[in-house]
Structures are given as C-alpha cells and as structure tokens.
Design a protein around this nucleic acid. Structure first.
Lengths: 208, 208
DNA sequence: GAGAATATAGACAACATACTCACATTTTCC
DNA sequence: GGAAAATGTGAGTATGTTGTCTATATTCTC
C-alpha cells in the first residue's frame, strides 16, 4: 500500500546530500529572494532565478518540484529571519521607549537585506495550498510579540488584540513605504516611527 | 491605395464615438479593476479582462493599444475616485478628532469598492513609462492632505513633512491590512485607527 | 432603405514561461 | 583505480499570453 502523503508540495523533490548540492540549493533560494525582491512576483520566473543563481534550470527542478515550492522555501527562510530579529528586540522588561527603539531598529534591519521582499511575499505571492498554514503561523507568532508588548505597556486591558493588530500594521506600513523609497535608514523617520509607537501605546485609551 | 499607417501612440487607440462603444470601454475598465483586485497583477491577463467584461479580445485592443495603457486607465480612474473621497473628508476647520474620524471613514469607503486594488496599483503594477508622472502626482496630492492636516494640528512646526509621511503610510498600512482580512468595517478597528492618529499628531514632539 | 461609418468577434502568429529528459560531470566508497 | 551514486546541464515540449487581422454585425446619415 502506498502511504502516499497528500501533497509533497512544499517538500523538496530530492534531499541534497553532498555539500555542493546544499550550496546549490542555498544559491537558488538566495537568488530567488533577490529576483522576487527586485522584479516582483510577475518578474519571478524560474529561468531567471536559475540564471541569477548561476545554475541550470534543470538543477533547480532537481530540488524544487515546482515554482510554488521554491517561493515557499524563500518565504520560510525570510520569515524565520524576521521573527528571530523581532524576538531579540522584544525580550526582557524595558521602558516603553527603549522597546520601541529596538523594535524599529529590528524591523529596519530585517528589511534592509531585501527591502521589498517582505511585502511581495505578503501581498503578491500566491497563497494556495500549504502556504496558508505557514503564513498564518507566521502572522500569529508575529502578532504575539506585539500583543505581549501592548499588554505590558498599556494601562487598559480592553481590546489589546485590536491595538496590537493596528500597531503592527501601522509599523509595517511605514517600513514598507520607506523601503519603497530607499529611506529605511533615514534617522528622522526612525525617530518619528518610535514616537508614533510610544504615543499610541501610552496614549491609547485616554482620548475622550 | 495610400496605406496610412500613422499610429498615434496615444492613450486610446480609438476614441469611442457611439454610446455602445463608450459602454464597452467602461465595461472593460471596470472588469479590469475587478480582475486586478481579485487576481493581482500576475493574474491580470487581457483575455481574462475581455472575458469578464463580456467582450471579445479584439474589442479590447480596439481601444487600448496594449496592456499597460489599460492598467493606466484603471489607475487614473481609481486614483481620481480616492482623491475626491479624501478631499471631501479633510476640508474646513475641525477638531482633530473629527478630522481623524472623517479621514478614516473616507479611506475605508475608498477601499471598500475594490479592497486590494489600491495596493496592487501602488506596489505591483509596473511603473515604467508614463505612469510615473501620474503616480507621483497622485502621491503628491495625496500627501498634501496629510501635510496640511499635520501643519494645522501639531504644535511644533519641525519635521512636518516627515510626520505627514509617517502618518499617511501608517494609515495605509492599517487599511491595507484590514482590507486583506475583510475587516474594513470592523468598528473597533476604526476606533483604534482614529486613536492612533490623534495620539500621534497631538502627542508627537512632547516625548522627551 | 442603401451605403458608409463604426463596432465586435474570434482565429491566428509570435513569443514567453514552466517544466522534462537524456546525457555529461563530479563525488563517494570499495 | 573504478563502479555506482549523486549532481549538473540545456535544448526541447506543452501550455499560455500578447497583440494582429479579417470577416461579420450593428448603427448612423441621407
């Protein structure tokens, strides 16, 4: 009886065993992230990725059964990077302002590698099949950091989740907009974003 | 026998003169907006648009010389709609909170028609060629409303432009995120977004 | 109503892209 | 060293997309 697993969609077609093939896979993912970031989903073709990675198209399909599994690998790697950066920024007990500063710093760092990749992965790249799960999981964990912070610094307990959602999407909006304009490392913008976070979190609930 | 191959590369290949052709053009643009909104730029094919509009592919190319001129028409129409909605919300002198409420209301209304169209037009649709001008013009006028408001309500004059940029991209981020989740008309979210705006604009500049 | 102007339809050519396959090259391991 | 496994190659195939062309249908002018 074939114990066929439903869909080896995001799975690799073949496991790389030697060092050079692992390097090939890594080069493909990195090149894929680069192509996706610079050309967007519409310009993301398997031939271009193979070319940018310096391997043949055949090698690409040796390890990734189709285009979606490749973008899935890119997504997973990038989200892991972002989450680890964010997690670092938001541990321990700190004053609100300190937390905001480190959060902004972390977000900027995470987006400096491939400025628009994050947004492309969230908005453009298709979410069929198995990616929904990974995506939701990322969003959930991502939001957790914000919720924890919000719970820690806000006086009122009500609507913490909504506040966290509003805060996180506001921060994302600013970061993405800045990334689009190559303004990620403008100090003035960083400062203002920190102020936005502080003002909202500390002030939310007293407006009347 | 004089074969006049004078091909004016204008916006439209041919001006619709009869009522039915004007209806055809309108149907194509509306269908295009719908396809772009639901399927994204990658799924935006001329055949699908023609199909959704209930016309043949030939009719589409009768009026639009190529795919880009079609997306340009969609962009222009949508941006005009959004700007008029925003402009209405932000005139006269009002208390800050009132302004924020009407701004949020206007943004939500503008995005309720085709929830993700705005974002697709900003991020995915190609920006080469002549669209840059229209795009920049929109961004500029768009930002003007924010800058005017910020100048009116903030105590400190410094960095008004940066503040306006941060505020507008934060609002956009929240709206886009809500649109993605079909949460645009959640009252709790609207309230929190209003509070975010008020807290930032009134509080910005007093954090030591 | 006749003929000109305008509008629509859909087959088709030219091209791009995802993915395959038969074979070449490198590495492992005895 | 050499067989076998692992890895790499790139022209080739199937499919889909843009944009053209010509035949047909509808509306306008008189």
């Amino acid at each position: 009886m074939s114990t066929r697993i439903a869909k080896p969609r995001s799975r690799m077609r073949k496991q790389p065993r030697q060092a050079r093939s692992r390097a090939t896979v890594e080069a493909i993912i990195e090149a894929g992230a680069h192509v996706l970031s610079t050309l967007g989903w519409a310009g993301f073709t398997t031939n271009k990725v193979a070319d940018a990675a310096g391997v043949s198209i055949g090698s690409l399909y040796q390890y990734f059964p189709d285009k979606l599994s490749l973008v899935e690998a890119i997504r997973r790697r990038h989200f892991d990077q972002v989450l680890s950066v964010i997690a670092e920024s938001a541990e321990d007990d700190k004053p609100l302002k300190r937390f905001a500063q480190e959060l902004v710093r972390g977000m900027i760092d995470a987006h400096s590698i491939h400025p628009t990749l994050h947004q492309v992965l969230l908005d453009e790249a298709p979410g069929d099949r198995g990616s929904r799960a990974a995506h939701a999981s990322f969003q959930s964990r991502y939001l957790d950091h914000y919720t924890a912070a919000v719970a820690q610094y806000r006086k009122r307990r009500k609507d913490n989740e909504t506040v966290a959602r509003v805060l996180s999407s506001a921060v994302e909006g600013v970061i993405h907009n800045a990334a689009r304009r190559d303004m990620l490392d403008t100090p003035e913008l960083q400062k203002q974003l920190v102020e936005l976070i502080c003002a909202y979190v500390s002030g939310s609930g007293r407006s009347a």
